[in-house]
Simulated assay, not measured.
Amino acid sequence: MALLHRAEIRPTKLELLATWLPGRRWFHGPAGTEPVRVAGFRFDDPAGEVGIETILVRAGDGPVHQVPLTYRGAPLAGADGWLVGTTHHTVLGPRWVYDGCGDPVYAAALADAILAGTGQAREFFEVDGERQYREPSMTVAATGTGDAPAPAVGAPRRVVDADPALILTDAVELVVRRRLDGDGEPAGAFALTGTWPDRPTPVPLAYATPR
Rank of each mutant, 00 (worst) to 15 (best):
D161C: 01
A208L: 02
G62W: 06
R134H: 07
H89Q: 08
P68G: 12
T143S: 06
A31G: 07
G117S: 04
L192H: 04
I114G: 00
L21I: 13
A187T: 14
R24C: 15
V91L: 12
P75Y: 03
R10N: 11
L21F: 13
A141T: 15
L205Q: 02
A107M: 01
A121F: 06
R199F: 01
P186E: 07
F27D: 00
A189L: 14
V176W: 05
E135G: 10
Q66C: 09
Y71E: 06
G102H: 01
A171E: 03
D103S: 05
L92N: 07
P151A: 11
D44S: 11
L168W: 01
P75D: 04
A171M: 03
A141R: 10
V159S: 02
A107P: 00
P210S: 13
L168A: 05
G102A: 04
R179S: 15
G100W: 11
R211C: 03
V84F: 12
L3A: 13
G144K: 09
W20S: 03
D44W: 01
D112I: 07
T33P: 08
V91Y: 06
A113L: 03
A18L: 02
T70Y: 02
T33V: 15
A47N: 10
V91H: 10
Y71T: 09
F125K: 05
C101W: 06
R37N: 07
R72P: 03
G32M: 10
G62R: 04
P35L: 04
A171R: 11
G62V: 08
Q120S: 15
A109F: 02
L92P: 04
R24L: 14
A18Y: 05
R25L: 14
A79G: 10
A152E: 14
L110D: 03
V84M: 04
G51N: 01
C101P: 04
P149S: 07
V84N: 06
G73I: 12
